[in-house]
Write a protein that binds this DNA or RNA. Sequence first.
DNA 1: ATTTAGCACTCGTTGATGAAGAGTGCTAAC
DNA 2: GTTAGCACTCTTCATCAACGAGTGCTAAAT
Lengths: 342, 342
Amino acid sequence: MLTERQLLILKAIIDDYITHAEPVGSRSVSKREDIDYSPATIRNEMSDLEELGFLEKPHSSAGRIPSQKGYRYYVDHLLSPKELTSREISDIKSVFRERFSEIEEVIQQSAKILSNLTSYTSIVLGPEVFESTLKQIQIVPISQNSAVAIIVTDTGHVENQTVSLPNGLDVNELEKVVNILNDKLKGVPLVHLRNKLTSEIGRVLEKYIDQYDSVMTLLNQTFLSQQNEKVFFSGKTNILAQPEFNDVERVKRLFNIFEEDALISKLIRSEGKGMTIKIGQENRFEPFDDCTLITATYSVDGKHMGTFGILGPTRMEYPRVIGIMDYLSKDLSKLLTNRYQK
Amino acid sequence: MLTERQLLILKAIIDDYITHAEPVGSRSVSKREDIDYSPATIRNEMSDLEELGFLEKPHSSAGRIPSQKGYRYYVDHLLSPKELTSREISDIKSVFRERFSEIEEVIQQSAKILSNLTSYTSIVLGPEVFESTLKQIQIVPISQNSAVAIIVTDTGHVENQTVSLPNGLDVNELEKVVNILNDKLKGVPLVHLRNKLTSEIGRVLEKYIDQYDSVMTLLNQTFLSQQNEKVFFSGKTNILAQPEFNDVERVKRLFNIFEEDALISKLIRSEGKGMTIKIGQENRFEPFDDCTLITATYSVDGKHMGTFGILGPTRMEYPRVIGIMDYLSKDLSKLLTNRYQK
DNA sequence: ATTTAGCACTCGTTGATGAAGAGTGCTAAC
DNA sequence: GTTAGCACTCTTCATCAACGAGTGCTAAAT
């Protein structure tokens, strides 16, 4: 295990590197107020810490920088989340005080404030629809042969989809269908809609509806509904201010990834509740090898709803960011619960 | 006016610079097959063209590059749109052959194909809602005190908005309101909804509805509907492949602008129909001083619906891009008209 | 009157060289 | 166990010269 002094020095180095982004030398460590050893002593300890894998050298005559293992240790044992300043708290509050017309808007605003406060890039996944249940379904004919199908969930989420209408379908017939659907499907989780359609509703419709086959095709179209969550970014360019991204090639690679919503969604989606911190290669995704991704979740009424994350360099202001993420996670959940609880 | 030979040389230089992105020297011009003069002659002409403002020199011992005026002349007089290759046409066709569930999806796909074909960044404005008319309005209660208001337009566009319900509003009452609205407002252009509400509907509601005041507040909320068009990007990073963006500062500035949807929307929105080409400072927007923005429009049934654009360096492959934009504009309009005509 | 060959000149690019500075690692002294 | 001292390493930065691409001008050729 590490000695008390090693811990002190490791923390000092990481803190310093996090703020200055430059390799830390023995002299500057020994000059810190809380450290009372000569550069030579520090050098010896640094050498040991390097051997243990917590530090590394960019080249032989530079100072040390934290290794991935170093950051991991720092996050797990050394750091304590920083309390938010009253300014930060009031920033968050003031954003949430605005009126929002849609749940997605709240999500987007959260992403924005997160990126503003942290100066990194924030990524927020829209509410995961599949846990919500059907509130109402509506089919509005638009033209001779097309209609818009609208699905409203209990969380106020609205999905809509243009579908093509079977030739010569009677409007009254359509209305009957919609009524039956609303009757039978209210309260059913969205994921089960298709199952339910084939297993139960099919038989009922058969009895009442003339154009059974074409209506079923129509409904299948409707419920094929793409389950893809929306991905919201904010502060994409924030991360460019970090010196580690002073290279166009790097920027290009990163921004290319930003355009792949499905990929991002998969990377961000956290396994469970609470906060996840993935440092460098822990992301198991090569372009993020020198990024840290911190994710947290938000919920409504204790029910998991979605995930939001912060992407920055591994050299991230962990204490502050973790503090903010924690606060925002709770605050956002509170806001949403207030709004959408049953 | 320019002599025949000057035109030939100007075109040669611009063509060369567009493809190679490097100042063009007299020797390389004179080596072209269609030009049969010695470097010295070319040099004299180049000197004249520079004096006339069509060319400029990065520094005294480099070749010439086109000036903004040069590009403008090229676009107006020298260039002929390039026919699409059969490969390009089939690419477009194959994308449009897919099934789309929403009009927005078609728009997004168009943006994607546009950026893919051109290797620049494409920007597409979603359909301009305010010209469409109301097809149906729906208010679905979600919880004790909130509901989702849904507006469907004749073009199949769906807008939804969470509104807070007045305390103790009766569900039947609400239904009555919705029925009246649908009765009175069907076919009214979205822009006029609010007017109509205060001018006519108010009086009608007063007669039938108990909680007149609170219902009016609710409806006002609903129709406050943000008219902001959606902005879709595709291939944001394409433009980074251009050598003129080999500088992180530049990239940062550009991508910052990309995050400002409202700004982009204002820049892109074209004044009228047809194609607009804005070269460099013609954009009247400093960060675009060395970009060219080409916009075209799409329509349904001849009615203007929206705008799409391509952003690239002033050194843009004009003939090809113009050809593609023209084709896509027509094809997209045809597709949408097929789908949403009355 | 054009066109072109020839040549001096300009200016950015590249690569080599060396001094400066930051930091290490080792040894020996405290 | 701690620290002072010092040689050594490696990057950074500025300087300098050689190189080459390209121009502009003059004078000769067509």
